[in-house]
Design a protein around this nucleic acid. Structure first.
Lengths: 140, 140
DNA sequence: TATATTTTGCAACACAGTTGCATGTAAATA
DNA sequence: TATTTACATGCAACTGTGTTGCAAAATATA
């Protein structure tokens, strides 16, 4: 298995186990975000549901992954490319979901626009999800 | 029951039934968005789960309600104040969720900022959810 | 290698959401 | 208003999702 996977786990004070290595490797070898079901039923592998839930939760807590909220009520996960500290994500980017192929991507090259909130309100975090059609699907 | 409720239902070619009247009335008398559970266990009323699901689904299809995606994976519903045609929502606003009291609001007074997508991509719809603390909770 | 700690996987459970179908209710027609 | 038709409701049953407790297994540490 990739030595990079091992490094990431150790850097986050996590024991290196087969499940964690395999799941983390899925994210390193996929550019698109993955849903829980994608991981559980990944070709060739079969993980226990509970292990997948706990592994994803651990990775989010450690700042290795972040979640992407979607309108259809299915949470997807993606690698944090920035430096996220434990429990304090600050991925400064928004997300794109292709309505044709379902691909979910982090748009890291664009800055989150500033949004206004009512007077006396405090805005901590802005989640933006763009729905549309990706380049590959438009050509079909 | 409010005549306004009756009018909205008739305008959308929906039969006027007790459940629809009561559920729609909840939205007219609440400024905040409601989750499925809020409706099912509403004080004094008790609706069948299936009826609530089907009613909410019908209202969304007719453009009476719209859904608000949230990071915690719980869908909330709010009244569409603009003219939404069937299956084609164009509420031009974003949403605010208070992390202290859970209140969910439509921020209709602000315009959605334009966001960029990669070349060749097509953006159809932009969902923005602002997480923070509302004025009432900040004073506590 | 032996021990302490953590992780895993199973079973069981709680809850969310869906479907089919028989019954009840609202709307349309005469 | 009475009757017919179409639609909405509620129940039962089911699937899927996510959680918890606990014993067994694997990992880290000395």
């Amino acid at each position: 298995m990739d030595t990079r996977v091992h490094d990431i786990l150790r850097r986050n004070q996590l024991s290196v186990t087969a499940s964690r290595e395999k799941i983390l490797n899925l994210f390193l070898t996929n550019t698109r975000a993955l849903a829980h079901a994608d991981i559980e039923h990944k070709a060739g592998e079969r993980f226990d549901r509970v292990t997948v839930y706990r592994t994803l939760q651990t990775f989010v807590e450690k700042g290795i992954l972040h979640t992407i909220p979607t309108a259809d009520n299915s949470v997807r996960y993606a690698l944090c490319k920035n430096d996220c500290f434990e429990g304090h994500h600050h991925d400064n980017h928004y997300h794109f979901i292709c309505s044709a192929c379902g691909k979910t991507e982090c748009l890291e090259e664009f800055v989150i626009p500033s949004v206004k909130v009512p007077k006396e309100y405090l805005a901590n975090n802005v989640e933006i999800v763009v729905n549309g059609v990706c380049a590959a699907c438009r050509k079909k």
